[in-house]
Amino acid sequence: MDSVSFLRAALQAGTPLLFATLGEILTEKAGNLNLGVEGLMLLGAVGGFAAGLATQSALVAIIVAALCGAVGGLLYAVLTVTLQANQVVTGLALTIFGTGVSGYAGRFLMGDIIPSSIRNTFRTIPIPLLSEIPFFGEIVFQQNIFVYCGIALAILMGLYFSKTKQGLNLRTVGENPSAADASGIPVTTYKYIHIIIGSAISALGGAYLSLVSVPAWQENITAGRGWIAVALVIFSMWSPYRAIFGAYLFGGLDIIGFRLQQTGFALSQHLIGMFPYLITILVLVISSIMKRRQYAPTSLGEPYFREDR
């Protein structure tokens, strides 16, 4: 097995996971657990695909995909932030919604493939010089734009959390919304903005699947990746940097079974498919046993109502 080509493929398989995970991290940092990631990805996948077919423009496809996610995020935010609905149930409803909408719209997209102009935009573009670094450069810097953007986005998000005032405020909102409110941070606005942007980012993960990975329409194209993203948020302990590593690791696990089969080493892909979830449970259990600082934002999953404080 050629390790460079395998790792390169792992990065590509991990990129939709990375986007979905980053989006969910942003949402969860605001204190909201959105189990609708799978639905958001499907909305992004179908919206991006339809827009790509109609306009032949990669940029429009991406924008529409993000907008579809944003609309899903807005729905979720109205229900959970303003109307104080249960986050778990709302998230599940959002997943059902995304599955239904994409299944419905997808009926009319069956058999279509992405035009070559768009596929050309997402071709492999080696970065001069860097791509010549042996091994590391060959893996990381011989990729498509989407992969580069994923890494850049993760780093930007990490910096946003640690270096900017807004990022700090956001963390306060997620940790202790009443304290944030008391210190004059507009809690509701923060939640809305970050949920909506986070949802748009998650939807881009879905768009990667329909525009780049496949690139054709498949029923239920995400195949549970949204749930892996929920797991990845825990695995990476809400850190965008660790999410890069985690997404590529899980992406690698996603494709390794198939590659192993080619080398004649038979470990069922379906058993390997359990690893992401098993590893995530392990992380959950170990971090709770160690009683380390809980990495999850403290108010995660709880609605915030000002008069309760």
Binding site: L35, G224, W227, I228, V230, A231, I234, M274, Y277, L278, T280, I281, L284, V285
Partner: peptide, 8 residues
């Protein structure tokens, strides 16, 4: 999160 993971 634990029960969610067990589903898959």
């Amino acid at each position: 999160l634990f029960t969610l993971m067990l589903n898959y």
